[in-house]
């Protein structure tokens, strides 16, 4: 199985707090891998390391076979897109938010392309000139995903993007991610607290606890976990 991302004995600490402990594992290329585990397990830190917002203290991370530190940070971040749970927006319209990634490169996203992106994430063109502050939680998440897609990342990191949304919006976004994965062959890593969602959308799953990778493999492992801690976690429906 070809790895889009490979972790080898990765450790990460901050302020004497050991957040990731000797983490080793892969995220398969072109697949959707869900990351599940209790809060504080280190899932978001994995994303920050992959996107280059943080660096491991020890160990190695490979992106498409190349050591992460061999990438220029700007190139790395354009190739490994990150959509955050809070979906932060810059002060401006939806169009201005969509134009941000190219604006950072001194280029301009044509309005027609922005409309196409909105359609892709299931938003009407009329949203283009709405102020970002006027959007609902679900709409913000969709704009945030569309904005991340502007850089055409090969790998997309989604950090609990549906946790604050109602079921209909959640399903909308699940379908959208499946479409993106299918259409562009994008490798997708998705942190979720919703085990049913992990089962519905994931090809593979990482179960993390207390900074360690406890179990990983095909998502069906959640239906019959071998590790006692994972079994307990699944029994609690991922909420413990």
């Amino acid at each position: 199985m070809e790895a889009a991302i490979r972790f080898e004995h990765v450790n990460y600490s901050i302020n004497h707090l050991h957040i990731l402990k000797n983490l080793s594992g892969i995220f398969p290329k072109g697949k959707i891998t869900t990351l599940v585990g209790p809060s504080g397990a280190g899932k978001s830190t994995v994303f920050r390391l992959c996107n280059g917002l943080r660096s491991a203290n020890t160990g190695k991370i490979f992106i498409h076979g190349k050591l992460i530190t061999d990438y220029h940070p700007v190139d790395l971040r354009r190739n490994v897109g990150l959509a955050l749970q809070s979906a932060p927006m810059i002060d401006g319209t939806v169009l201005e938010n969509l134009q941000l990634p190219l604006q950072l490169q001194g280029k301009k996203l044509p309005e027609s392309e922005a409309k196409h992106l909105l359609q892709l994430v299931g938003l009407d063109n009329s949203f283009l000139h709405h102020h970002a502050n006027d959007l609902s939680g679900g709409q913000r998440q969709k704009v945030s995903i569309a904005r991340t897609l502007v850089n055409r990342p090969k790998i997309l990191l989604l950090d609990e993007i549906t946790s604050a949304l109602d079921r209909v919006s959640q399903q909308d976004i699940e379908n959208l991610i499946l479409r993106i994965n299918e259409k562009f062959g994008t490798t997708i890593l998705w942190i979720t607290h919703n085990l049913q969602q992990a089962l519905d959308v994931g090809d593979y799953t990482w179960v993390m606890m207390n900074g360690e990778l406890v179990e990983s493999g095909k998502t069906s492992l959640l239906e019959s976990p071998t590790d006692d801690r994972v079994r307990e976690f699944v029994k609690g429906d991922g909420t413990n």
Binding site: N51, L53, V74, D75, R77, R78, G81, L82, L84, S86, P88, I90, L100, P101, L104, Q105, R147, T148, N151
Partner: peptide, 16 residues
């Protein structure tokens, strides 16, 4: 802070 990290995560430079 979220704006700063957003721009960095999209491939912006520290100055941006």
């Amino acid at each position: 802070q979220d704006q700063t990290e957003l721009i960095l995560s999209l491939g912006g430079t520290p100055k941006q």
